[in-house]
Amino acid sequence: MFTNELLFLSILTLSLLVLLVILLGYLTIRKTVEIRKRKKVERYREIYNPLISSNLIEGVISRKLTPETILQQKAIEQLLSRYTKVIEGEEEKARLARLASMYLSNYYQKQLQSHKWSTRMNTLYHIEDFNMIDLTDDVFRLLNRKRLSHQEIIYILRILALFQCNQLFDLLTTKYQDLTEFDYRHVLIPLEQKKFDQYVLHFHHAGLPLQKAIIDVIASKREVSYNHFLEKIFSSYSGEIRLRALKALAEIGYVKDSAPYLELLYSDKWEERLVAAKLIGSLKEGKAIPRLIELLHDRTWWVRSQAGEAISQFTQGKAILQTVLETSTDPFAKDMAWEWLHKGGE
């Protein structure tokens, strides 16, 4: 019995050793193949780099720049990725997009159909980086694929926005109505004004996350042309949307009539006092200075800080803060005045 057990253990140990040797051999061969591929790609990069450089700078197209294998396409892809980080001129960017379309479009069309999530995502990244508008339809059709990850969906929608796709509005207002505010904002940012205006017109019918995203995109772009829209939203909505509209106006830093916003400096809500102080500071509305000085004594630190910043934006701001520092009996107001005096001097 004992002998049989020893024999069984010996056979099992030997089997495991054989499996380990086979696995080690497989990994060694795989590593060797990968190293060879990498070296080939490096050689192709050395050949293609001057050709691509000449094209981007001078518009010269060489017949030698014709990839016939996947490794050659990989080399071109890597070189173009590097150039996207350094080229700035619009003409050079257009040439890069043309090169990518000429030599990588067919390759990417196949990559988008890959069963691997990482392959599809990497392909989407490159399509965006290279601005490959010719693949818009291929990217759009990818939305029909089953079991797309949330990350893929958002990235696809963002690329469609970047390429100013006409179908995007219907997608966001019908099929994809349950996205987060962050998702919508990420998608809407690349839209040109004419396309973005569709969402502004749709605002009253949109869900809350999309409404917030629309306002935040306006705030980030600081487009004065949307001021009338924002003021209308501010006067007709309540709660978070009203506050978002106020924040957007403060970011833009301009309103036709400051009266409604001067009143907000006395709001019971600290968030409204805060944003109103920011807007009034941008407007440099002199009649608000006494109230801004009072807000240096506000019970909320954020409001005190914004009041200090607003005062510092006035021509006489430093003198006002110095007076508060010397005369106020409120240690919090004195600290805030000192802080913004210091910031103003940095």
Rank of each mutant, 00 (worst) to 15 (best):
W117M: 08
S118V: 11
S118W: 11
S118P: 07
S118M: 11
T119G: 00
T119V: 07
T119D: 00
T119A: 00
T119R: 03
R120Y: 02
M121W: 07
M121G: 00
T123S: 06
T123C: 13
L124G: 12
L124C: 07
Y125W: 15
Y125D: 15
Y125K: 14
H126P: 12
H126F: 10
I127D: 02
I127C: 04
E128G: 10
E128P: 09
E128D: 15
N131M: 09
N131L: 08
M132L: 08
I133V: 11
D134V: 10
D134L: 08
D134G: 10
L135V: 04
L135Y: 03
L135T: 13
L135Q: 11
T136L: 09
T136C: 07
T136R: 14
D137G: 03
D137M: 06
D137I: 06
D137F: 01
D137N: 11
D138M: 05
D138H: 14
D138R: 14
V139N: 02
V139T: 07
R141C: 00
R141M: 01
R141G: 00
L142I: 14
L142V: 13
N144Q: 10
N144M: 06
R145C: 03
R145H: 06
R145D: 04
K146C: 01
K146H: 06
K146W: 00
R147W: 04
L148M: 07
L148Y: 07
H150D: 15
H150V: 12
H150S: 13
Q151Y: 07
Q151H: 03
Q151W: 01
E152R: 03
E152W: 02
I153Q: 13
I154M: 01
I154D: 03
I154S: 03
I154V: 15
I154N: 02
I154H: 02
Y155H: 12
Y155L: 10
Y155E: 06
I156W: 10
I156P: 13
L157T: 02
L157F: 01
L157D: 00
L157A: 03
R158D: 05
R158E: 07
